[in-house]
Design a protein around this nucleic acid. Structure first.
Lengths: 336, 336
DNA sequence: TTGAAAGCGCTAACAA
DNA sequence: TTGTTAGCGCTTTCAA
């Protein structure tokens, strides 16, 4: 598996290795004849440029670090797909890591990215504290936060307008005739979820409804935790007609608990989610939900980051996209 | 963002840079006193080793290329999660790419991996032809194929015993009393699916059943294609009591079509899948299926690959794991 | 125990 | 248009 280098090509072609380099880089002043001749020899000798060596001198790697909390989460993996394709179009590849929602892991990984000299990092923050935990490291490498509102934090991010999304959700349920709407799974430690809660609250206020919460005491909004939380909810009589779940995964957990309790959705209880993960569109599930535009989120993340990298931009940008409602079958219109 | 290098540290410490290098690499002969002194200075000056430069001289990158067909596919993303965690434990990181099931893309990506000097590649083949398409490139970099039987191909792979899994599935349905079992979604161009088909066929033969096929004419076994295929199936009277779908995603598509047609699962029709993707365990879905042990598959893939890399092993290994049945709610026991 | 120096494969400034 | 040379940041002989 001996590596064919530029020198071997130079020797074979009887030229200096800068000539070979020039032929390969396409640009530069060089005669068309030697150029094609050398390219031919490269092909014959099975030469493949060494990207590591090039990185060394070019001072870039054409690599983007992507730190997700968990790639097996459908929201992340869908975003990851779009990010990869967008990045590749622009000549970059993705170095993938999972932080497991641990601030400590996240920090280790971020340092790894610095060490590996990636050109930039796309970060799905482990928590709302991620910014502060990484603050000293951030100036060392262009970074964009994705999917989490960071409020007034001085670093770039792209996210959905969670406040607005929640507000829209309540309005929708209101229009269907619902007046007693529970906000299910409100979770601490995430600005995203805080904003969703605030949007819900504001809509209730504006529409004259009484806000009702069922807080999530668990660390995450997984299906399992939604299920456990819903078991608590269903252990006493229901006094609401609709539930607005803070995430689709939480909603799915609730659905499962409802099934077991014989509570029919939407006949007995309407259910609205948030995120529109792929699961939600599945047959038999058909979860009505507030959608995060994942493809757009991904391409904005890549664009913003590359803008920073390629134009050596300092400062930061905040991009906030408007979510939309995806109507499926879990919300019932109440007859008067 | 000026980069602090080993030279800066050396200058600050008043030693040569080989001394600094030795302090960092941990090993080597060096006095404990200077070692700690230098480490201190590194910390003070915020030094982070340049992994690219190290790769240059060490002739390894501690990077594993991972080429998947589509990371948003739940089977892949789950496997990717385990692979990352396993690789990281062993000091490697993952370079992620999506081939989109295109042989041509796959080849481009494989060459990219060579160029980037990853230490090895984990490949989820685009097709059964992947091996031949990459054959000339394979000797240049340690590679392991994952999730696809390649039969007698002289390259390492780890996969599940698809033949056996399908056989087990038929046996299970037989035990429940089913005698007319349709194999749904048989697809060309993939050894995996061919083997599943053969397992089904063999089981039918051994149990005295008549094999019945509904072939997949589409390129993939997605939910959507399963749905379309099932629409065809349901356009004429059903003469089977159970359907064995070639993948869970296909089964999910069929489920949707059944729902629309008013065909109840499992009351009117039993349904068995293959893969056990996460979707399948969801409430309301509860798909009974043949499970691929994803965590095990992932760790075997990493282990086999690292063995090849670190021991500079030549030759190849084939590892075939036995799948297992996961019983949920889509298969009905027929009363005599 | 430490330092000097070569070299990994490449690009680019400068000369010819 | 081409060749010569320095150097990217690091590890590792070899010598002191």
């Amino acid at each position: 598996m001996k590596q064919v280098t530029i020198k071997d090509i130079a020797r074979a072609a009887g030229v200096s290795y800068s000539t070979v380099s020039r032929s390969l880089s396409g640009s530069s002043e060089i005669s068309e004849s030697t150029r094609t001749r050398i390219l031919q020899i490269c092909k014959q000798m099975n030469y493949t440029a060494n990207a590591v060596a090039r990185s060394m001198v070019m001072k870039n790697t054409k690599l983007l670090g992507m730190i997700v909390t968990d790639i097996s989460n459908p929201f992340m993996s869908e975003l990851a797909y779009y990010i990869d394709s967008q990045a590749r179009n622009r000549g970059y590849n993705i170095l993938l890591c999972n932080s497991l929602r641990s601030l400590e892991q996240e920090r280790v990984l971020f340092e790894l990215m610095i060490s590996r000299k990636v050109d930039g990092v796309i970060l799905f923050p482990a928590e709302s504290e991620s910014f502060h935990a990484l603050e000293t490291l951030l100036p060392r490498i262009p970074t964009i936060f994705v999917g989490e509102n960071l409020r007034d934090v001085p670093e770039s991010y792209v996210t959905v307008d969670n406040y607005r999304g929640a507000y829209m959700g309540v309005e929708y349920l209101y229009r269907l005739g619902h007046r007693r709407i529970l906000y299910f799974g409100k979770r601490k430690g995430s600005t995203t979820h805080q904003l969703r809660g605030e949007g819900y609250h504001a809509a209730c206020r504006d529409l004259g409804l009484t806000p009702r919460y069922m807080n999530n005491t668990f660390a995450s909004t997984s299906i399992k935790h939604g299920y456990q939380l819903a078991q608590q909810l269903f252990s006493q009589p229901l006094d609401v007609t609709a539930v607005f779940a803070t995430t689709d995964t939480n909603a799915l957990g609730l659905m499962q608990a409802a099934e077991e309790k014989g509570i029919r959705i939407p006949e007995d209880l309407s259910l609205l989610g948030f995120d529109n993960i792929r699961y939600s569109g599945l047959p038999r599930i058909g979860l009505t939900t507030i959608e995060q535009p994942k493809k757009l989120l991904a391409s904005m993340a890549v664009d913003s980051l590359l803008e920073k990298i390629e134009n050596e931009l300092t400062g930061y940008t905040h991009r906030v996209l408007t979510p939309s409602l995806v109507e499926r079958t879990t919300c019932l219109k109440l007859e008067k």
